[in-house]
Computed example of a mutant assay.
Amino acid sequence: MPETMHIGELADRTGMSLRTLRHYDEIGLLTPSGRSEGGFRLYTDDDLRRLLVIRRMKPLGYSLEQMGDLLRVLDAADAGETTEARTVLQDFRADAAERRDRLASQLEMADEFLEQLDRI
């Protein structure tokens, strides 16, 4: 088995809470790669990469279901099922770009507001 880390280390490395990681395990979004003899969750670098995908989707407003959908597509691509996966990934990328543009626009408005307040 590859090198593993406990949930606390994974939380530290990602800036996510233990509660969130446990919830992701409960709903099947991020299942640990193994368990210690004492029953503690064990995560690998692959699990860390999956969690970073999830963490990067959160600010764009993706639902847990959508996160799971993308992870399944990434798994399919890793398994060699590239034709359909590539199409779905392109759709996800286009959607993520639109969401990012909306956030950039909101940030511009927030900056304008702050500048307006500074002039008062």
Rank of each mutant, 00 (worst) to 15 (best):
E108V: 13
T44E: 01
D46C: 07
R41F: 09
D118G: 10
S33L: 07
H23Y: 10
R99Y: 12
M5D: 00
L21C: 01
Q90M: 14
D75P: 08
A77Y: 12
Q116P: 02
E9Q: 09
V53R: 11
L52M: 10
R119W: 14
R19T: 06
G61S: 11
L30D: 00
P59D: 00
R86I: 06
Q116V: 09
D95N: 12
R99A: 03
E112N: 11
E65A: 11
T20A: 06
G68H: 05
V53H: 07
G61W: 14
D46I: 10
A11W: 05
R13I: 04
L114S: 09
A104D: 03
D95G: 05
R22N: 03
Q66L: 14
R50V: 02
M16Y: 05
T83C: 09
L74I: 09
D12W: 02
A77F: 11
L29F: 07
R99V: 11
I120H: 14
A11I: 06
D47A: 04
G8R: 08
R99D: 01
G15E: 02
Y62N: 01
E81D: 10
R49K: 14
L71H: 04
Q90G: 09
R86Q: 09
R102K: 13
R102A: 03
L18T: 08
M109G: 01
A76Y: 08
E112C: 09
L71W: 06
I120Y: 14
S36T: 00
L42E: 01
H23A: 03
V88P: 01
R72Q: 06
E37N: 10
L29D: 00
D101Y: 15
F40Y: 13
E84V: 14
L70K: 07
L74S: 02
T31C: 06
Y62S: 01
E26H: 15
G80K: 13
L117R: 15
R102F: 11
L51Q: 02
R93W: 15
G61T: 15
I54Y: 00
D118E: 13
P59I: 05
Q106L: 07
E115Y: 15
I54W: 00
S63L: 08
T31Q: 08
T31H: 08
L114V: 15
T31E: 04
E98Y: 12
H6F: 12
R41Q: 05
L42A: 05
T31A: 08
Q106W: 12
R93V: 06
G34Y: 01
L10C: 02
V88L: 12
